[in-house]
């Protein structure tokens, strides 16, 4: 099973839920920027939540399904459609006939979309993950973004996504019954996963809830107030390592240098220039800049959808609430998984 890349899009990589466990060796966990969207795409195709899929950035690829396959698209809306045919719905499983060529355009809002294939993308795991780490050149296809001509190896639903096998068979039958021409055929069930739970992909102004960082006390009163009151803009030099923000300068009241220490996705660090950087999935394991805040884990999918030029606002949250929301999100995904499984088996 495979997908062929006809055009790679702006920046498309294979990602999974990351490879934690080697931060002590200096290797970051990486993984999908919007882990919520990839997780839902996986659930919609009967995969395990941590299966590998494609992360599409700003402008999507043109792909050809080399076999019949069940896919799902989530995250930012890049207006997916079959070339010469109909639109592909997002947030629901879609069956494609072998030979179908489909294309994704520019994200109207948001930044990243995800594509899962029933069975999962089957590149060999490296250092505990299949996701691409471009800097270290591991995972994905030779540790690099996709290029035209690449064949993306996929497992069959029967091997990696048992819950989807029956659905796949039903959708195939539906297409055959309607007697549609194979190469542009698709079918989808009526049910879908509502994206409302996170709703971030479309939002113009993104609100990130954040806790005080270890060095927040080293910033001026004005800086701490401005962080939560003023809007920040995502600068163009932002990527999977971190988002650079422009806005009010955040002034530190001491010049003392810090010794390097552990950082994490969501850490808001402030280099001497005063413009904050929010670290993201591919961030280094350690850093030396003072940390003014830490974005709640539950809001990292929103960070993933902040494109250059987008407006970000911070809102204070305390640790207790952040942890409750994080657990509630996991609970919600568990319920969604159960609901999708039931829908797939036709109950």
């Amino acid at each position: 099973m495979s997908l062929t890349v006809l055009e790679p899009g702006f920046y498309t990589t294979i990602q999974d839920m990351g490879r934690p466990g080697l931060r002590h060796a200096g290797l970051g966990a990486g993984g999908a920027m919007d882990s919520y969207a990839l997780c839902v795409a996986n659930l919609l195709t009967g995969n395990e939540p941590q299966a590998a899929g494609l992360e599409l950035t700003l402008s999507g690829p043109v792909l050809r399904a080399e076999q019949d396959m069940l896919i799902a698209l989530t995250g930012a809306d890049m207006e997916p459609r079959i070339v010469g045919g109909m639109e592909l719905p997002m947030w629901r499983p879609v069956w494609l006939a072998a030979g179908t060529v489909f294309t994704l355009g520019r994200a109207a809002a948001g930044c990243r979309a995800y594509l899962a294939v029933a069975g999962g993308i089957h590149v060999p795991p490296q250092l505990g993950g299949r996701g691409t780490d471009v800097r270290v050149r591991i995972g994905g296809l030779s540790g690099r973004p996709l290029a035209a001509g690449d064949a993306i190896p996929c497992m069959a639903a029967g091997d990696g996504a048992p819950p989807a096998v029956a659905l796949e068979a039903r959708l195939r039958q539906r297409v055959l019954a309607e007697g549609r021409r194979q190469a542009i055929a698709m079918a989808a069930p009526r049910w879908f996963a509502p994206p409302r739970a996170y709703g971030g992909a479309g939002a113009d102004g993104i609100v990130l809830r954040a806790m005080p960082g270890a060095e927040s006390g080293q910033f001026s009163e004005a800086a701490r107030t401005a962080l939560y009151r003023e809007p920040f803009r995502v600068a163009p030099a932002s990527d999977r390592m971190g988002l650079r923000l422009s806005g009010p300068m955040l002034e530190r009241t001491t010049r003392a240098e810090l010794l390097s220490h552990g950082v994490a996705p969501g850490t808001v660090q402030v280099p001497p220039g005063g413009s904050p950087i929010v670290l993201a999935a591919d961030c280094q394991t350690t850093g030396g800049y003072p940390k003014i805040a830490q974005v709640a884990h539950v809001d990292l999918p929103l960070l993933a959808q902040a494109r250059p030029g987008a407006t970000i606002r911070f809102q204070p949250i305390d640790l207790a609430e952040a942890q409750q929301l994080d657990l509630a999100r996991e609970q919600e995904l568990a319920q969604l998984a159960a609901g999708i499984k039931a829908a797939m088996s036709g109950l």
């Binding site: 806790m211 960082g213 270890a214 220490h261 552990g262 950082v263 994490a264 969501g266 850490t267 940390k291 830490q294 974005v295 709640a296 884990h297 539950v298 640790l319 952040a322 942890q323 994080d326």
Partner: peptide, 8 residues
């Protein structure tokens, strides 16, 4: 804490 998923 370093946010809601790490401890220092």
């Amino acid at each position: 804490p370093l946010g809601d998923r790490a401890i220092v």
